[in-house]
């Protein structure tokens, strides 16, 4: 149903609404580095070579993630 962080266009600002992943270890990792419900997120850079890593702005911090990790973060726009 909802969108994930991975599907955002560059510069599109969204809010985290939850996590979903087949890998149960991923959510704690993402929470630990700071992702939480209601946080503002935005993809600010894509890696070179059509790469898997993306650089995400989380509130006032920058986090490097892989696409599959970004896909575990559910977001809503606006």
């Amino acid at each position: 149903m909802g969108m994930t962080l991975e599907e955002l266009a560059r510069g599109q600002i969204a809010r985290v609404i939850g996590f979903r992943s087949e890998d149960s270890g991923l959510e704690p990792k993402l929470r630990e580095i700071g992702f939480a419900e209601d946080d503002e997120v935005e993809i600010v850079h894509f890696g070179p070579l059509m790469a898997r890593p993306v650089c995400v702005r989380l509130n006032r911090t920058l986090i490097a993630l892989r696409r599959n990790e970004a896909a575990a973060i559910e977001v809503s726009i606006g």
Binding site: L26, L62, I63, A64, L65, R66, N68, E69
Partner: peptide, 11 residues
């Protein structure tokens, strides 16, 4: 298994 990156980029 595949590993994760998840790394903070400081200012």
């Amino acid at each position: 298994a595949a590993q994760s990156l998840i790394m903070e980029l400081p200012t």
